[in-house]
Design a protein around this nucleic acid. Structure first.
Lengths: 195, 195
DNA sequence: TGTACATCAGTGAACGCGCGTTCACTGATGTAC
DNA sequence: TGTACATCAGTGAACGCGCGTTCACTGATGTAC
């Protein structure tokens, strides 16, 4: 019998906590507000999470999983063409997915990014590494420029997210933002391209 | 007589608030803690700042001014050579300065970045624009790639700061971080370079 | 099948904390005549 | 030069708020015999 009082309270709490994070970022994820929303006493939450930090970590894990899922979905949409072109498109898809996810779910993204260590990002990071490898193998990307390329690509898209998400470029119209992103991805490709 | 009780309390408060921001970012900048540190009642602060937000804005302004100052100092160190090389070095200096400042004073940088709108960044942004123009004029940067180059450069260095500052790459040894930054600036140059 | 008991997931009240902000006030300074 | 008065920059107490966390408890469920 998996059910008692609320049924799976842990699941209900986590789901609601993710919603809180989505709405207001890390600061909005609190035990008391969570309990209120779930219709349960604050103490009840302590049966399922050791403290607020534990809760934040759990929300962050959900965020990372969702990002990974979104990346894979985007990656799957890349059509088969010649290897170099396919590699290029896959690299681009990853950047695009990262930015789109972060801008669609800024709060959740912020929770994930704040709570996280490098080790927690193995899955999404792996996508990037694989894509870059594919770019080299197919001859699209220069061997020499491959070294240390991950943090560079990452920095580019992450910075974009910061500037356009809650940062100083947050006011920019959607059209401009999209054009900006397209140019950013163009330049990233240029920077790695074999000449 | 510029002095009364504490002398220029506003200056003393602002100075201390900047210190608070430096130590703990936006969350650490609070009226009560500020008053405590300055040795004055919380109410006194309200004679000089309308509310906490006003205080944060003032701290942010100091942060921006310091960043600008640091950029100009770095820019001044660029030696005279042929125009294209000089332009390249100046562009690079700006990126380097941005990152160094942000990593040396992460709290203050965070306050500035959070409180700020695009209009407040006119001065530092102008440095970037000028440097890019110089790069085009001297033939180092491609005309076509000049369009929309500012947000791209900015995104790159800003993302770098986020990843290495409080983000998932925060643990990286200094050496690696420096090498990463050098590579990032290399790739930014490559991405804009006339081919 | 029935019963005693352990366990487990909740409740409700209370703790202490620090925060931003407001209030009525005081006492030093500057100013008009 | 002296004096009445306005102003100005402080004080200290209090407000209400929401937070994380702990405590002793209760009542439903699962389990051993």
């Amino acid at each position: 019998m998996g059910s008692y009082h609320h049924g799976n309270l842990r699941d209900a709490l986590l789901k609601e906590a993710v919603e809180l994070g989505r709405e207001g970022g890390p600061a909005a994820v609190g035990i008391r507000e969570l309990a209120r929303r779930t219709g349960v006493s604050p103490t009840a939450a302590y049966r399922h999470f050791t403290d607020r930090d534990d809760l934040l970590r759990a929300v962050a894990d959900v965020g990372i999983a969702e990002l990974e899922e979104y990346m894979l979905r985007t990656l799957r949409r890349v059509r088969r063409t010649d290897p170099a072109e396919r590699a290029r498109r896959r690299l681009r898809a990853i950047g695009q997915a990262y930015v789109e996810f972060a801008l669609e779910a800024p709060g959740l993204f912020a929770v994930a990014f704040n709570a996280v260590t490098f080790a927690d990002l193995t899955a999404p990071y792996r996508n990037l590494t694989d894509a870059l490898d594919e770019c080299v193998e197919s001859g699209f990307v220069d061997q020499d420029k491959r070294r240390g390329a991950e943090p560079i690509c990452w920095a580019g898209v992450h910075g974009f997210v910061m500037l356009h998400g809650t940062g100083p470029l947050r006011g920019a119209p959607r059209r401009e933002r999209d054009a900006d992103l397209a140019r950013l991805l163009d330049r990233i490709e240029d920077s790695l391209r074999r000449t």
